[in-house]
């Protein structure tokens, strides 16, 4: 392995960027391909597929063997709101392999007693986001119902190209939210990508059932996420 490639790969990984280390198994030469980098020729489809699936594998192209080692940042789930749904969601996210955190400035809600096994930040989202900004491998679910708390992280999530942005609230509540987000300068495509009402339509009624529907929707979005769409949204931001 080229020492320069190793350094570059580690840099990308530490910065939470998706990257593939491409090794020609015939001659041992390697290169780092970042997500969104243009790739010419027959390797392009294999690279795009590998970024989407996250699965490392050997591909045979024109008689040569390449190993594609995919390094995706671990997906994060940031929940705005330390509510009943979030209590049910925390263990589910953990089981599904998601790194979850909860942000809620209302200290009556955000207590360690209610959330023993999850990273909890009893602070305003703008403060949390300064330390831990959203990225394309972050899912954001806003569940407080309070525009003072939910709106800013929703705006930031859309601008950061998060692979999932969901917001709790009825259609009527969401219609008002859409108007507010428009005045913040977000375009129709960005606003249209919000999952609202939040969660897959499984007829969820209890907080735990709603948590299941949210987790399912996050997983679906992660598996189907389109690199191109995310890059386009990022550019127009």
């Amino acid at each position: 392995m080229d020492p320069y490639c190793l350094k570059k790969l580690n840099q990308e990984r530490l910065a939470r960027h998706a990257a593939i280390l491409l090794t020609d198994l015939g001659d041992g030469r390697d290169r780092v391909v970042r997500e969104g980098d243009p790739v010419a020729g027959p390797l392009r489809d294999a690279i795009n597929q590998a970024f989407l699936s996250g699965t490392s594998k050997v591909v045979e192209i024109e008689g040569r063997s390449f190993f594609l080692n995919v390094h995706l940042p671990p997906p994060r789930l940031v929940v705005i709101g330390a509510v009943h749904i979030s209590q049910a969601l925390a263990p589910m996210a953990k089981l599904a392999g998601y790194d979850m955190e909860i942000i809620d400035p209302r200290t009556a809600f955000a207590t360690p007693e209610r959330f023993p096994d999850v990273r909890l930040f009893a602070e305003w989202p703008q403060d949390s986001l300064q330390a831990r900004p959203f990225d394309r491998y972050t899912a954001v679910a806003a569940v407080t119902h309070d525009p003072k708390i939910d709106d800013l992280p929703l705006e930031r999530a859309l601008r950061a190209g998060c692979f999932y942005v969901g917001a709790l609230g009825s259609r009527k509540t969401h219609a008002k939210r859409v108007e507010r987000l428009k005045t913040l300068g977000l375009n129709d495509e960005q606003i249209g990508s919000i999952h609202a009402p939040i969660g897959l339509d499984i007829g969820a009624a209890s907080p735990a059932e709603i948590a299941v529907s949210i987790m399912g929707e996050v997983i679906k979005a992660f598996r189907a996420r389109s690199v191109q769409t995310a890059l386009r949204l990022e550019k127009t931001a």
Partner: peptide
């Protein structure tokens, strides 16, 4: 499966 090679480890 989701890959968990978190580089901060």
């Amino acid at each position: 499966m989701i890959s968990h090679n978190a580089p901060e480890q």
